[in-house]
Every structure is written in structure tokens, then in C-alpha cells.
Design a binder for these strands. Structure first.
Lengths: 257, 257
DNA sequence: ACAAAAGTGTTTATAATACACCCATGA
DNA sequence: TCATGGGTGTATTATAAACACTTTTGT
């Protein structure tokens, strides 16, 4: 999309979108024993933003979030859940909006005042398998990339706060969310799973006890060994029994203390 | 407030409020071993609504919720927390809006279209001590009353769903919310506390084990006995050590399995 | 004196924790 | 053959659950 297309897209959009409301997605991925968050860079601005969007008048908030996620990652039915709505009246920094509008060459007063109005945004948590994603930029961005949670770039507006709130919520709800099922690849080792838990909960776990507990839950199926991981005994690969995993979550039974 | 006052209040309000956004409070109280929710009855309509309101352009969502709660109950600093935003585009039943507008005699097109626009609402949970509340009707209501959770009246729009979501959330988060501190009177018996837990969690607990566990937490202080409760041993009254209670919650340590 | 409900104690089962041991692997 | 990390076992401790026994109260 070049400059004129964007202007056209916005001119049409502002009539079709619900005013003053947006959704932002904290999309979490996992790989190399590290948690990542997907972020985009607004054109001509050195701050990154969460993948977000506006809400069409004939769609629900949940549908808008699903659409945003699909547009950025290509995924159809990932785990997606609202977690908090950010409603401070001064949450958007007007100078950053001004700069972006200047970069995009937007002068249409209707569009300008659209962007300058007060916005509340509802944050959604998405848990995805990085390898399944086909990243796609949005019209206002010129980059989209995974960033390690431990090393986030400078973020626009209150997006850092949104991420922190999301991570906190996931930590609290870890035993009620399909973190393993959604974030791990189809085949994984117990170590992968354990490190994922440790990344999210920020607590170190005992290797032996973790393994026993997970196995006892009966949500995994043991596959072949993963050879070639180094000079040591090869670990088994596992995959999830999705149905049993889901049943455990539905019952609200956590599986770590 | 009579009819003309309301019309005047609305005419002014629609210019000062953020459009398309509201807050609704699920205000929980406890007494007689029963959970209650505060609801109001819109004038001339046989449905009850949650105490709610619109958001002034210069206040945050949280401030709006705090204001609504203060206006209805007189309380200044009760426990209040956002729990979910309801964003379906068809969540408000237009015929009910029409009827209410007719009852109030509202014809000003600006006000009519204000009420007929799409609204999202953010739900807040409040935990209050019933005895501390001084209930106050809002301009559009002609009744305000506590309703047992087990026996709610017919509710407007999706307010039943909002209540159910709130109750579900409280159930999940029971060990991280100040349910005892906020819902019990200053002096209470262990039985009161236990029944409160049972009401919220919908699980029956063992009397002896409950008592031991709570005592072991060290968040209570034993007071005099409560005589006159019937032909049986008199139970002790307790009060909370607020600081220690709060410390427990902050650490995220639940106190029931 | 009795029934009702409170306080406290005991036993048993279950789960969490810590750590030890041996094994398979690639260098 | 050796260091590394993996699988599994065991002893210990802590917590949860079930229930029994005694005490206090008003009638």
C-alpha cells in the first residue's frame, strides 16, 4: 500500500469504524526457550506498536480482534481472549499521532480528528505457534517482527503497559490457559515445556518433579526420541492429547502448584 | 429529579460524555449468609439494570466507575475492579430503549440517537459491606434494591450475562480478592466467613478444616464470644488484621485449595 | 437433661519437595 | 571414556480431607 492508498483506506474507514474504540493484540510466540511478542513499527516513527485495529460498525469486538490477528499472522483459530480494557483519557500521546499523520501525509480534517479523538482500547491475548505464522504488515507500518519479551523495543503510547498487564495476567492464569497446546510445536520435549512454564511464571521448577507431574496428568503422548541434541542421553519427544488437555482446562484444574 | 430535569440533564450530558462507551457495576454485598447484587429499575419498565453510567470526556474509565459507585452507595473507597468489556454490536435491545425513551418523554433527536447508538460497556466488580451503603436512585430509575444472587429479577439487555461473568470471575479469583475484608462486617464469626466462601465458590467446605486453615493464616484477631445465637456453644467473633490480609493477597497466595 | 453447634484433636491420604541414582549419547 | 543432560526412584515433608470427641449454650 503506498501513500495514496493509505489515505483512501482511511477516508473510507473512518465512516465504517466505531469511533473511539480499538483492539490491540498481545500475540505471544515461543521458540528457543524464549517468549516473543509480535510488534509492528509505524512508518517513520521509531516506536513499535502492538498489532491492533478499529472495529467495524457491524462486527463485535471479538470479531475485530480475530480479524486483526488473521490479517497479521494468517492464523484462523488461535487462542484469543480479551484481558483488559485501557480507558485512561490521556493514554495516547498526541505528538506521536501528529508525527505519524505528517509522515503519512494525512491532511483530511475528518481523518485527522479521527486519530486525535480519545480512544479506549481492549487488549487481547493471543497464544500462537511462531512457525505457523505468515507475518503481514498493516497499512500504517513498515516493519513487523517478533521481539523477545525480555528485550522489548520502545513502544508507542501505553503499549508497554498493555504488554506488562498481559504478561501478568498470563502468569496468574497460566494453569487455565492452553499455553502448552498453543505455544509449543506439535512435537516437543519435556524440557521445552518446562522452560515455557518457567518463562511465563518466572519460577524455576524441578526437572524430575515437572516431568512426573505432567506425565501423571495423562495429556501427553510419548513419541520417538530426539537424537542429535548433544553429547548426552536423547530426550523423548511428546505431543499433546488435545482433547484431554482441553478437558483439564475446562475443569479449571491447574497442573502446577 | 422530575421529567424536565431529566431531559435537561440528558441534553447537557450527551455533549460531555464519551460516545458509545459506558461502565456497569456488579456491586456485591453479603448478609444472612446470602450474596446480594445491587440493581435499579428503569422508570416504567419491568426490567432491572446494573448501576451504570457514562464516561465524562475528561475522566478515565476507572474514575467513571468509582463515581457511579459513589453516587449509588455513598461509598468512597470500596474494592472496585474492571473485569470484562462487553462489545457485541447487538447487545442492547432497541425496543427496550424505545420504551424507556417514551416513558421519559424524550424527543430531542440528539438524545434519542445518543441512546440508540452502539454501546460497549466495561463491567466492574465492587465488593461492599451492605450495611455501609446509603442507596440512592439514579435519574432514570424509580427503584434501587439488593437482590439475592440466587433469585435475580428480569434484567435489561445483557446485564444477566454481565452478572454471570462477574460471578464466574470472582469464583476463579476468590483467593486473590479481598472477599472477606470487603464483604463481611467488622466483626464476624468463622461460620459467616465460611458460608461466604461457600456462596461464592459453590463448594461445601469442612467446618473444622476451614477454621484451622484461616487461623493458621494469621490474618484474624479473636474477639469476645457472640452470645445469644441459640441453644449451643457461642462462637467467637473475629476481626481482620487488614495489613496481614492485604499482604497475603498481594503475594498472590490463595488461602483455600 | 438435652439438642445444637462450636472448638479442638487425630488419623489417613494425597501431594509437594528435594535429591539420588543410573543411563544413553556425541565428542 | 568422559562429561552432559535425561529418565526414573525414593525418602521426607507439608498439606488436605475425613471425622471423632469434648464443650458450651438456651430451652
Amino acid at each position: 500500500m503506498d501513500g495514496n492508498d493509505i489515505i483512501e483506506w482511511l477516508n473510507e474507514g473512518v465512516d465504517q469504524w466505531v469511533s473511539g474504540q480499538s483492539v490491540d493484540c498481545v500475540i505471544l510466540g515461543y521458540g528457543n526457550h524464549t517468549l516473543y511478542i509480535l510488534a509492528m513499527k509505524w512508518k517513520g516513527i521509531e516506536s513499535w506498536t502492538l498489532p491492533g485495529g478499529f472495529i467495524f460498525k457491524n462486527e463485535s469486538m471479538d470479531q475485530a480482534a480475530t480479524r486483526v490477528l488473521k490479517d497479521r499472522t494468517g492464523l484462523d483459530f488461535p487462542f484469543l481472549k480479551q484481558f483488559h480494557t485501557f480507558g485512561n483519557h490521556d493514554r495516547r500521546d498526541e505528538t506521536q499521532v501528529d508525527r505519524e499523520l505528517a509522515v503519512l501525509g494525512i491532511k483530511n480534517p475528518k481523518v485527522v480528528s479521527w486519530f486525535k479523538q480519545r480512544f479506549i482500547t481492549t487488549g487481547y491475548i493471543a497464544l500462537v505457534n511462531i512457525e505457523d505464522c505468515e507475518l503481514q504488515q498493516d497499512p500504517m507500518s513498515d516493519d513487523i517482527a517478533w521481539h523477545p519479551v525480555e528485550n522489548l523495543p520502545s513502544m508507542l503510547f501505553d503499549h508497554k503497559e498493555i504488554i506488562e498487564t498481559a504478561l501478568q495476567q498470563i502468569k496468574i492464569q497460566i494453569n487455565y490457559l492452553p499455553v502448552g497446546l498453543s505455544l509449543l510445536p506439535e512435537k516437543f520435549t519435556m524440557k521445552d515445556f518446562q522452560k515455557l512454564y518457567e518463562c511465563i511464571s518466572q519460577v524455576e521448577l524441578d526437572r524430575a518433579n515437572f516431568q512426573k507431574k505432567i506425565l501423571k496428568l495423562g495429556i501427553t503422548e510419548r513419541l520417538e526420541k530426539q537424537m542429535g541434541g548433544g553429547a548426552h542421553k536423547a530426550p523423548y519427544l511428546y505431543k499433546f492429547d488435545e482433547q484431554k488437555y482441553q478437558e483439564l482446562l475446562d475443569k479449571g484444574i491447574g497442573f502446577m502448584s
